Amino acid sequence: MMKLLFKTWLSKMIVLATALLAVQTVTAAEGPYELTQRAADKLFADLKSNNAAIKSNPNMLKNIVRNDLMPYVHVNYAGSLVLGQYFRSTTPQQRETFFAAFDKFIEQAYAQALTMYNGQDVQVQKAQLNGDSQASVKVKLIQAQPLNLTFQWRKNSKTGQWQVYDMTAEGVSMVETKKQEWSNILRKEGIDALTAQVQKAAAVPVTFSKK
């Protein structure tokens, strides 16, 4: 029962994350609040204009996530946080392979979660800055029981672009959740085994649940 509730909660987090992080055009001058505030419009427009095609081919949601979201997610940074203490014991090639699998895993997870979206409204609050390169944006998903989330943004030191690397729902971090979930396999079997598991999860087709 608890596992089912957690999966439902995580799906809701991912739905809102996808809705809020999709952007059409990003410039380094734009801040986390501006990106978050206007992000939903692009994704909602794509979902609406492709609704019929998505119904017949749910995997099309992967394309939408790939085009609208993934270029603006700091996959490698998030992945390094997930690896935690095991990061230093991996080779550059192992990390590169893991990050590529993690990238596809996020794409699949967000696309699958989008099948649950049913038009909820979103409220976005002003960004809270933490120095020059860190910020958080609080958002609320309006529904019978409102869901409060916080998106963690980091300015890429190479590009100057703000990118999301984590989000929390009611105080629970998504990065920390995956870190804890995957630490056992990292400890016992190593990164290659985890990468294979992540690749398998990423390859799962997107489907609509049968009501």
Score class of each variant (00 low, 15 high):
115 T>L: 02
88 R>V: 13
39 A>T: 05
99 F>H: 13
208 F>K: 13
130 N>C: 06
149 L>I: 11
59 N>H: 04
168 T>D: 07
115 T>W: 00
54 I>R: 00
133 S>G: 08
178 K>M: 12
129 L>A: 14
41 D>H: 10
161 Q>E: 15
50 N>S: 13
53 A>E: 13
18 T>R: 01
92 P>L: 01
40 A>I: 09
153 W>G: 01
35 L>K: 08
146 P>V: 05
157 S>E: 15
111 A>P: 04
14 I>N: 08
184 N>W: 11
60 M>R: 15
27 T>N: 08
209 S>K: 15
44 F>I: 11
13 M>T: 05
162 W>G: 00
110 Y>M: 09
32 P>W: 00
138 K>I: 07
29 A>N: 07
53 A>F: 01
55 K>R: 14
141 L>W: 06
58 P>V: 08
17 A>T: 12
204 V>Q: 12
77 Y>H: 08
4 L>F: 09
138 K>P: 07
160 G>W: 04
60 M>F: 09
90 T>M: 02
30 E>M: 10
184 N>L: 11
31 G>Y: 00
168 T>N: 06
161 Q>K: 12
123 Q>F: 06
53 A>P: 04
11 S>E: 09
86 Y>A: 04
4 L>W: 06
21 L>T: 14
9 W>C: 09
34 E>W: 02
86 Y>Q: 03
205 P>A: 05
201 A>P: 04
93 Q>F: 02
144 A>K: 14
10 L>N: 12
36 T>D: 01
141 L>M: 11
176 E>Y: 10
190 G>I: 02
21 L>P: 01
52 A>F: 02
111 A>H: 02
196 A>C: 04
16 L>E: 04
56 S>W: 03
29 A>G: 04
63 N>P: 03
85 Q>S: 13
7 K>R: 15
106 I>E: 02
46 D>E: 14
23 V>G: 06
3 K>V: 10
158 K>V: 12
